[in-house]
Amino acid sequence: MLSTNFTRTFGVMHPIIQGGMQWIARAELVAAVANSGALGFLSALTQPSPDDLHAEIERCRQMTTQPFGVNLTFLPAIRPIPYDEYIDVIIRSGIKIVETAGNNPVAYMDRFKTAGIKVIHKCTSVRHALKAEQIGVDAVSIDGFECAGHPGEDDIPGLVLIPRAADSIKIPLIASGGFADARGLVAALALGADGIIMGTRFMATQEAPAHPDIKRRLVEADERQTELVLRSFNNTWRVHKNALTEQVVSLEKQTGTQFPDVAPLVAGTRGRAVYSSGDWDNGVWSVGMAQGLVYDIPTVEQLVSRIVGDAGDLIANRLASLRTA
């Protein structure tokens, strides 16, 4: 086993986290991750209401006795999101680990701390990581440019961003973006991180609630088949490259394009349908460059055991063998 500041602080066996992927981070996947000794996060906003989140937490508890958390993403929305009610459910349900993302969670930190909840905040820059540490989060995850979803606007890849963050903060640091195997885990530890987050890789597991055709697509695709959309609106989003995303990029290049012009193409309901229908070409859906490292569709237990075992071998054998007397 690998013991780090992250595993010791959060009471989990392995320094691996399953990210809170919207539509995918549901009980069947999160419980499997928890049972493997890693840390899984339910996506709160995947659930239509706070009551639905409570039911999903209870469903997860029926499948695992191990620790798991809830991801809560704070983003502007056309319809106001009842964040206080979601937090009420998280506290009432006895959840002890929350991953926050999007806007600064400072307004909710007192409630989390009073309830004894540890907070991991997701950042895309060192300056945001420092601010998160200042407001009292217990750990920071840092998203390199390779990541799925929203990598920020600085375009700094993990090889630079992770050690910069490690040099700058004192709380546990989790590396995110481009991780899919033992080599990535060992590299992240060498760069100064205390663990890794994987999203795309966990999507291609047997327990992930996605259509088999989506999982097969992840195996078939390579690292070049992602696209950055919404760049012109300063809301960059890394997604799987398909006919629809190319249409979005083409519209963004046209003079005078406004967000309402692309909104129907990037609608969340359309992206959600991809995971249930398997029609990967007919929606905008998040995926990272790590899809180029996805070669199979194992169970979560097989995946985590393989990564941890191979990481131990890499450290004990390959890296040790490079030393000279």
Results as ranks from 00 to 15, higher is better:
S286E: 06
R318F: 14
R270L: 15
D261G: 06
S232G: 05
D181M: 07
R164G: 00
I16C: 02
A44S: 15
F112Y: 15
T245M: 05
S36N: 08
A273N: 14
L45G: 04
N234S: 15
G11W: 08
F6G: 00
A132D: 08
V186M: 11
I97F: 02
T324I: 11
F202M: 14
H240Q: 06
A165H: 01
E133I: 03
L189H: 08
T299G: 13
A139H: 08
Y86G: 02
A166H: 12
Q291A: 06
V12T: 10
G271I: 07
V249M: 09
T73N: 13
I196E: 03
P172I: 10
I197C: 08
D279V: 05
G312V: 01
A320M: 12
S232H: 13
I87P: 01
S43M: 06
L39I: 11
L228E: 10
P50N: 07
Y275C: 05
Y275V: 04
V126D: 11
G177L: 03
I90W: 04
D155T: 02
M13P: 00
K215W: 12
T9Q: 12
P50G: 11
P172W: 08
V186C: 07
Q18L: 06
R231C: 12
I117G: 03
V294F: 11
G178F: 07
L265K: 06
N317F: 07
Q66S: 09
R61K: 15
I120N: 03
T299H: 08
Y295T: 15
K241M: 13
L161P: 02
L130P: 00
Q247A: 13
